[in-house]
Write a protein that binds this DNA or RNA. Structure first.
Ligand SMILES: [Zn+2]
Ligand SMILES: [Zn+2]
Lengths: 690, 690
DNA sequence: TAATGGGTGCACT
DNA sequence: AAGTGCACCCATT
């Protein structure tokens, strides 16, 4: 009884007792700019059609800026009582008050229902939410802090020698970086600023234990006693790090488990796809700007681009933010690319702590790119073989200029969300990368377009901004990569293409083995085979363990024999131990789906040749060139990359099989989101019944 | 079942299943300096004699210093495996490795038993412990962060006007201070230090949300799997703030409630006394150095005195610590005073954040002293009347030089533990303050000596150091007072003396009313009457609510009618609302004790004239000079105080009634601690049965 | 392994 | 609205 909030007794009235994983609302547009967003249809229109749909709320933009906006009419201006009462406080604060209201919010019966609902939205964007603070009337979410664990690689028992060299080097950098960045206040002045300046700025004090948890991204859920509803607002859509979806995280596993427990079939299906896209290095469909929808202005208004800041210590630009639109040439050529960039540093932290050793931009870029490559998938980090080590030294020594090395380093896993976190639009030329039709709903056979159509429309408006809140330039070798100087163009190009063959002696077992792994991480061909199998036979209903204890599917496959793993992907997964369980789980459904079996098959106890028959290139205990993708999925594109990549030639080879599978995925998602309509200048999710 | 640590299954063996609130151990001294401290008598010697005694563990000192110590033989040198293995890391780190082992530690059956046991030790020292971090194998305690709450005063509904001026002034200071002090790293370099310097120092990163929780004091409880025992070590005995016992804190109430639930009669008795000493402005018996016990060196060795640092930004002294002994003249004259001081700043934090407006030392001293006076008891802060405001402006304007103002400002409540947290020994002359015999166990009738003898001997070795971890000088107006420049001498003198009469017009109702409150807080006469009554009739057994739900005694007295409060003390308490409940609770026992009633009497429902008959000076609804203490308890003493106080003359007037009551208290406590013995050069608590 | 040290999720206040 | 108490973790040695 204690801790129970009586206000929520009223809240849990039968009128609004909808389950939290449905967003099938008919949504009218509140026109009043001074009125809080109110759901006119509070109940669920229908619980039968899509009871567990992935939430796709329309976010209304609330932009307060010193710049007067002509397009304010459909910008959802201010809202919460505190904002209307408080009016405008400081110029500096206004820039932080860009609010995105998630509008169709279910009537959560319990506070704990909010996070899973939000996770459905933000996990696909590569954002792992954690609760920063909560009480009965609010829940504040932020990005999960990244693990430090720069020595995680060393825990590999079979780690070969000769790698400590780079580790030590980076360790020194890490130490310096860590301790050089108290990174407390959001906006700080120099140490010698006058008291007047100090008092005029109201920087926030936050927990500042490490540089890993100072991302400004915030989502706030607030319970209104009047409306007896929760409202959710994205308070700050900026990020201080790369976004990436990590299916191996414990939090995600719990989330997925809850989906299964809740029988949220559609969400399970979507996240299974997401997992496989991640594993297969397929591009994750993320925020794009649909054409002619009228939202472009909002996006551009929201995507406030912070002033480009050199890595020299400077507090001058900390409070000056400007709103820019896409470069006209780029905008016309890439209408589906989000206008996201994180070139500038908002200098929220560490202004007084300049990074003493400032590397040149190119080096930073390449190094961070490599780091992403090394660290995105845990298997890559955990292998710790000379090949990985070679990458590390390559990045540090500038070998990245060698196109051969580039081929290995640049192909970033799609889970790094490079598509979304484009860093410096001014330096990247996306010309000819996207040639698709600007109309997403028109039929197209271009794979990239399929990806765009796969996009959950809710993410259109998210377009997470990746900003650098650390003023230092980090040689950080870990998951949270703060460097804003990522060459997203090259990353993006590699996402769609597999790495070219690398020349290695097959007799060098260790090196060769690692090369296979690396190449596998870079290539997408065999992964696409998996996806094809997966998507063709996938049946989300098999994921439901209704009436079965939660951990059953997990406990069935806790150990795997490496010798059973003929496929290099599986072998690769088995190398990292626990991460192998997931792929077995999923493969079980590849087997079970078509047969409608309710019980997943344990691959430890079934004939693995059965699995092999479904998978091409599966050879038990065989390593070597036969793992090379039989077909290269590559597209013609330019990779200027500051002039470093122009020697690289990549060819587009259409893989019809992959294409078909992606179209299946895309059509599935399109079916889900076909009810998005433009209503009064805003996108609304319209229930078909209405 | 989940979360249960199997290691603790072994731990909870019947051999060592002693309740955690007993410390009646016969304790042998571990002589080996390279061996971990081991209890040779693991079981309790006897559970019958004193089953709930206040713990009095002997702390063994573990001092590592760059200075070689001649008295190392009875200093309990290093101990834990990591220390012996790791040898000496950095000179800077050594100073932080002064460890105090709490040696007779009960065999806690549960991790949650540790905190209450430690609270028994540290609450009397004015230290409110909270858990910083815990898991199944360790619990780390630190000081509870003080509430900021400078707006707490404003919440007073009856707050008069004309006070916002000072509040605004101090608010600006607070803001500046807050935001000028990220205070993250323990040892920081300047922003422009070279990488080499940066990497050579390993400052700690801690949570740095506010300046209120950066006290370095740490107590660590570690569970040893080998020994299957908990060991407790004071890792850092320094404090960044004044120590004060706050009986009004919620944590303390819970602690007290647990004592009652556990039927810990002796602890209840002791803490009841402590509460009344606090309320009555009686000195709290704290750390003293017994003569000829051989521990003086240890104390002096442990009390590492950090270099006196001006408030100018400096990182040079952050890692240089020197061990000093008491000034010889002072040591000979005041052998029972702890050699504690907090003159210097260890510069653990905020080195890069110099306080921009540096006040002169005198102003800071007076202001902070005043602030302690205003804020120690919540009732003083919450009244917020012009008198308090006058104090505030007085301190800012330097009126403190006026001895009349001094009389109002300097008398600090004893709960501020000024005895313990002497700030600058070099500036304070304690000559003639203590004239007692240096042998504590010889009979004495001097009240101060009685206080000394009251001391729990366990606190001898604690002697908390109050150090300034903030380099700035704060105009902080709240509970956590960081300023190290407190004139402890003046404070101490006032603890033993009541304030002289103040000249005020009795017709000014508001001002007069506040003056009464202030004077009451300063005087001890009427309080002593309470204590006399209390101690005479006190029966701790009546505090036990065995078989009664926990909150019963609390729920019985949640509201009081102010008109029922004839006694100014009660009236004063009623003014602040919730704090009045406690005194009613205690008064209930004054009533119930002699009659042996198991049920406390609710004074809201009994004849209050009964209460009044027990209390002198009780006049309902009467304010004025009659509340002046009938007798002044003052002692001759010098107050050099940098030459500011030499105009002040104070006379000693012995109050026999007070003296008797204090002797009763002293004898009671002496009875409890008569079993402290010197064993092998260390104080040991020897069970009488042995 | 045992032990130590520390980050951080999240709800309480 | 935010600080912080506390525990669940992870990392290092
Ligand atoms: Zn983020
Ligand atoms: Zn402290």
């Amino acid at each position: 009884m204690e801790g129970f909030n009586p206000a929520h007794i009223e809240h849990a009235s039968p009128i609004n007792s909808s389950d939290s994983h449905s967003s099938s609302f008919v949504y009218a547009l509140p026109k009043s700019a001074s009125e809080y967003v109110v759901n006119h249809n509070e109940g669920r229109a229908s619980a039968s059609g899509n009871p567990a749909a992935v939430p796709s709320p329309i976010m209304t933009l609330n932009l307060k800026s010193t710049h007067s906006l002509n397009s304010d009419q459909h910008v959802h201006t201010s809202t919460s009582p505190t904002e209307t009462i408080g009016h405008i406080h400081h110029v500096e604060k206004l820039n932080q008050n860009n609010l995105i209201h998630l509008d169709p919010v279910p009537n959560f019966e319990d506070k704990s229902d909010i996070k899973p609902w939000l996770q459905k939205i933000f996990y696909p964007q590569g954002i792992e939410l954690v609760i920063e603070r909560s009480d009965t009337f609010k829940v504040v979410f932020k990005c999960k802090a990244a693990k430090r664990g720069r020595n995680a690689r060393r825990k590999r028992k079979d780690k070969p020698k000769g790698q400590d060299h780079e580790d030590e080097k980076s360790k020194i950098n890490d130490d310096e970086l860590e301790y050089a960045s108290p990174s407390n206040a959001t906006v700080t002045n120099g140490p010698q600023t006058s008291p007047d300046q100090t008092s005029s700025i109201k920087p926030k004090k936050k927990r500042c234990v490490s540089r890993f948890n100072n991302c400004p991204f915030r989502v706030r859920a607030t319970y209104s006693l009047k409306r007896k509803r929760w409202s959710i607002v994205v308070m700050d859509n900026n990020h201080s790090h790369q976004l990436k979806f990590n299916p191996d995280s414990e939090e995600y596993k719990k989330f997925k488990e809850k989906l299964r427990k809740d029988n949220d079939v559609d969400a399970i299906k979507k996240f299974d796809e997401l997992e496989y896209r991640t594993l297969a290095n397929l591009p994750i469909p993320t925020a794009t700007i649909p054409c002619d929808c009228g939202l472009t202005n909002e996006i551009q208004s929201f995507n406030v681009v912070l002033p480009t800041n050199s890595n020299v210590t400077s507090s001058a630009s900390s409070s000056t933010v400007s709103s820019i639109s896409l470069d006209s040439s780029n905008a016309s050529k890439r209408p589906c690319l989000p206008s996201v960039n994180n070139t500038g540093s908002i200098n929220t932290n560490n202004v007084r702590k300049p990074k003493s050793q400032c590397k040149n931009k190119d080096t930073l870029l390449k190094r961070t790119t490599m780091q992403n490559f090394l660290t995105t998938k845990s298997r890559l980090r955990k292998t710790g073989t000379p090949t990985s080590s070679q990458h590390s030294s390559t990045a540090f020594s500038g070998y990245i200029d060698d196109p051969f090395n580039l081929n290995e380093i640049l192909p970033l896993p799609a889970s790094d969300f490079k598509l979304n976190t484009v860093t410096n639009l001014n330096e990247i030329d996306f010309t000819n990368i996207f040639t698709k039709s600007p109309h997403p709903h028109s039929g197209s056979t271009h794979p990239r377009q399929v990806f765009d159509q796969l996009d959950d429309c809710s993410s259109i408006l998210f377009s997470p901004l990746t900003t650098n809140t650390n003023n230092e330039f980090e040689g950080e070798s870990d998951d949270f990569v703060h460097s804003p100087y990522l060459n997203s163009e090259a990353d993006f190009s590699q996402i769609l293409s597999s790495a070219p063959p690398v020349h290695h002696d097959p007799n060098e077992t260790h090196q060769e083995n690692q090369d296979i792994i690396d190449r596998f991480a870079n290539s997408s061909q065999e992964h696409n085979e998996y996806i094809l199998q997966y998507l063709t036979h996938f049946d989300a209903a098999n994921h439901n363990n209704i009436g079965v204890p939660n951990n059953n599917s997990h406990s069935l496959n806790t150990q795997h024999n490496v010798s059973d793993l003929g496929n290099p992907l599986l072998r690769q997964e088995a190398l990292v131990g626990s991460s192998s369980t997931k792929i077995f789980d999923e493969l079980k459904f590849v087997q079970n789906g078509p047969h409608g079996s309710q019980h997943p098959i344990d691959f430890q106890h079934v004939d693995h040749r059965h699995l092999s028959s479904n998978e091409p290139q599966v050879r038990s205990h065989q390593y070597g060139p036969q793992q090379q993708p039989p077909q290269q999925l590559q597209y013609h594109q330019n990779q200027p990359h500051d002039g470093h990549n122009h020697e690289q030639h990549q060819t587009v080879q259409k893989d019809m099989q992959t294409h078909e599978s992606l179209e299946i995925m895309g059509n599935t998602l399109l079916e889900e989101f076909k009810d998005i309509k433009m209503v009064n200048g805003e996108l609304k999710y319209v229930k078909p019944e209405d």
